[in-house]
Design a binder for these strands. Structure first.
Lengths: 141, 141
DNA sequence: ATGTTATCCTACTAAAATAGTAGGATATAT
DNA sequence: ATATATCCTACTATTTTAGTAGGATAACAT
């Protein structure tokens, strides 16, 4: 399951996606509109900024803006930054790989199955983007 | 990620699958051969028994046996018992559903994406079984 | 220059989940 | 009766999660 932090991150990102190309959005207004604890949101946006997804500006008229188009930001990237590994086992993780002590990775049946599961999940999460998460009334006729 | 407990559960189950149809297997011998802390393994096997996957027998000659064929035990079932929900959000979980406070489930884009991801993952985990996890040298020519 | 506004940074904390241990009760075979 | 093995309840240490608190820093306006 995704942590609450990750869910908040997605909400905030969708909010910023809806303001893509416009003026910066303040933490406080995201916090109020998306019902995310302000101080917690501060951390989240900072993490996303460090991961090069957001740009920020201090002082009056400042706030956060999405750095790339919502269509180019896939869900797997966000999850990895805020939530961590997507795979079900460390030994099948692409970005957070860790060897397991006992098993022979070539023959381990558990690993083999978890690899297939990972590929299936990733196929979705890497193809779908922030734009796919944006509500319908934004893609009006 | 799956908890260590879940990884232990899979190891133990594969071990029992290799002894399917034979005499009961003692906790202690699973513990030693699979390198799982004995007292922890006790809990795990008991959980699996309560979920009706295993049968147990006390006293000399006792131990655990797999109740159904390894081919009929799918991975999703095991994960749900020991690890919990497979879905990435409570609001898209089939077995551990919980409503989220804010969003309208009909239109929520985040939910929509997580539903697609869940289906992809589940397609694998519900089709693959313990038998698929068993090592190659057990399916000799 | 000096507020004002907003992000940035470090540290702290409470609660829950994870990964076990300990020790006795119970059932069964010999 | 005794040995063997599971069953059951309770406890504990560590890590992760979900935040809070408070000041430092940068940018803008007057």
């Amino acid at each position: 399951m995704l942590s609450k932090k990750t869910q908040y991150a997605f909400k905030a990102l969708v909010h910023l996606a809806e303001n893509y190309g416009k003026d910066p959005v303040k933490i406080s207004s995201i916090s109020i509109q998306q019902k995310i604890p302000l101080k917690f949101l501060e951390h989240i946006l900072n993490d996303l900024k460090k991961a090069d997804m957001l740009e920020s500006k201090k002082g009056k008229g400042g706030g956060y803006t999405l750095k790339v188009s919502p269509k180019k930001l896939n869900l797997a990237t966000v999850i990895r930054i805020i939530n961590g590994p997507i795979a079900l086992l460390p030994c099948v993780s692409l970005n957070f790989y860790e060897k397991c002590m006992d098993c022979d990775e070539e023959t381990c049946g558990m690993r083999k199955m978890m690899l297939i599961a990972r590929d299936a999940t990733l196929k979705v999460l890497e193809r779908k983007t922030l734009a796919d998460m944006m509500c319908e009334h934004h893609e009006k006729i």
